[in-house]
Amino acid sequence: MLDFVTVLAASEEGGGSFLVKPGIGLMIWTLLAFGATLLVLRKLAFPKISEQLDKRQRAIEESIDTAEETKAEAERILAEYRQRLQEARTQAESIVARATSAAQKQQEDSLQQARVQREEMMEQTRRDIDAETRRAIQEIRSQVADLTVLATEKVTRKTLTPEDQRRLVDEAIGELDFEALAGSDGSRN
């Protein structure tokens, strides 16, 4: 190692001083070479590289913006679809509910209608029965009258004038209570 140092020292003594002696010519060459480099780089290289970097930066920013927009759009559409789905579901539910209630109402209506109809039919039947009863009573009366006339004739051997007979019978029958024959219609004594 000591040898190494002495060698270095010796080499410095042995004409190494030119290493630290500046030369004007070389300095001018340096400035020329650097000046040319600077000029060319500033004119031809740096602006283009810078432009390209800026362009890419813009492209990246635009892509990010577009991606964000697309994402927002997608989210908006998704929300819309969800809302529509919800609406459709609600609508379907309301339709079902309405249909159910309509069906129920219709059922009730038809039940009511049937009841009314039945009532009417029963009423009609009742009226028919009443009318029939009355007619039957009338018939019986008439029959009884005739029979009575016949019976009286047979008993009395006397013929009354039809008018007298009828009057008499009617009086007799009028005294009879036929209401009982009317059944449920008449009040029973």
Binding site: A33, F34, L44, I49, E51, Q52
Partner: peptide
């Protein structure tokens, strides 16, 4: 005063210029 240092200077300048301009000219996306 053209010597070895000048040759190296000019070579380095040329290398700098050629490399950078070449790259700048064919900058791709």
């Amino acid at each position: 005063g053209f010597n070895r240092a000048v040759l190296y200077l000019l070579l380095a300048a040329l290398l700098t210029i050629v490399t950078m301009v070449y790259i700048a000219k064919r900058m791709a996306d």
